[in-house]
Design a protein around this nucleic acid. Structure first.
Lengths: 233, 233
DNA sequence: CGCGAGCTTGACGTTGTTCAACTAGAGTGG
DNA sequence: CCACTCTAGTTGAACAACGTCAAGCTCGCG
């Protein structure tokens, strides 16, 4: 499964699990962070950060699953799915851009550390290895977003949805059988399609023997087939 | 004109003109950069960086106009338009991501400084204010890309093209009358439409008295009208 | 048992792409 | 100076992909 996922430039974002940003800090610095952070639990559906509001804290997702989306004119676009180990709010680090540039909400019950953004700003200036890790993080997110961007603009419904399914299986749930925490409507949002089209496309995949669905329970039967659909468009 | 442009989250990328990344370096560090850079001139259409090839240098665009695009399966997606003052190649800073993540080519005659990427990596570790400026740059590019992403996925042809026109007038050429260096085909690529649709949509704008066109010469007559079209979709 | 949210299906309309033909202008060689 | 050709731009018609709308279904829960 992972071999498949590695071959596509998939559209869902997933953090690099090997990266421990705060482990790069000195003991002293870690102490400062620990003294200036709080841990918050969010229930399913709750807003974690609201686009346009002042970014006073950076969020470090510890457990759960979060959607980060851009809102405008009553429409929304999911920018990335955030799994534990990833940070939210870094685009507010520039002082001239100090409000959340997107909204984040919890797909499922989620816990997050909130760390004062000014502490983060100071750590960037005080610890260059930490700064470098943040640069790496931003670069990786950027590249993953490019892939998602490409997928949503240059593929049609079958390709988009095949991509999302492979990504959910390979990157988020890391197994070919999973109970989807998302509704059809959320799947539609994620792939930039209408709910009805998602349903019809899923049905098509099922008829072609690529996946099997039982309500919210998904099973990827033919990942290579899905991959082929991704690549064709 | 700029008041209009500021009100929309436009899809074309433009660098923050007030930022001089290398001015943050010490004299010593600037000397190292100057000793390890070359200036290259590119002719119209030439490839400046090719997706997939090793990133040995970061590009600092000094003059001209560059398109940065993502290629896959014989399709391409323009990620951003790069004007002088902006950097290209920063997404290759992470060591596990050390190839160009996109292709860059010159729209018009362009000059660029090429600076060894390892020097940049070292400067990030040695000079935290430089590192912080790079973080700010990546954040700004990220936000602009989100806007472009939203525009291309959630607007239809009229909205997309109106956005591009306002952006070209307001951000790139900075005047409401300009000779477009781009062909209709390039305009189509930029807005994610077919060439024919671009032509038809431009014609529509002209009939509605929003713009006037004489071959490659464009004039924005009613920026508020274009803005309204952007916002409606 | 009945209600309601989420899911599913069918019919229909719109948007925008594709294909093919045609035009205009710029450059080239006889 | 005139064909010739090549490219970019333009137009029309046919078609396909999707979204929208409206109606019906299902399943969990009070």
């Amino acid at each position: 499964m992972n071999a498949i996922v590695d071959r596509i430039k998939t559209s869902c974002t997933v953090p690099n699990p090997n990266r421990d940003y705060f482990g790069l800090l000195t003991e002293e610095q870690q102490k400062i962070v620990n003294e200036n952070k709080v841990i918050i639990e969010y229930k399913k559906g709750e807003i974690i950060a609201k686009q346009g509001s002042f970014t006073t804290h950076i969020l470090n997702i510890k457990s759960g699953l979060v959607k980060v989306y851009f809102e405008d004119n009553h429409k929304s676009l999911i920018l990335r799915i955030v799994a534990p180990g990833s940070l939210i709010g870094l685009t507010s680090l520039p002082l001239n851009q100090n409000v959340f540039q997107y909204t984040a909400s919890a797909y499922v019950e989620t816990t997050a550390e909130l760390i004062d953004i000014n502490i983060i700003r100071k750590l960037i200036l005080d610890n260059s290895r930490f700064a470098s890790a943040i640069i790496d993080f931003l670069s990786e997110v950027s590249v993953q977003k490019n892939n998602r961007f490409f997928c949503l603009t240059h593929r049609q419904s079958y390709g988009k949805l095949a991509d999302i399914l492979l990504c959910l299986a390979g990157n988020i749930f890391k197994t070919d059988t999973f109970d989807l925490a998302l509704s059809r409507k959320e799947l539609a949002e994620l792939s930039g399609m209408s709910t009805e089209s998602v349903i019809r496309t899923l049905k098509g995949f099922q008829e072609d023997g690529l996946i099997s669905i039982q309500g919210k329970s998904f099973k990827v039967i033919d990942p290579d087939g899905l991959l082929k659909i991704c690549q064709l468009g």
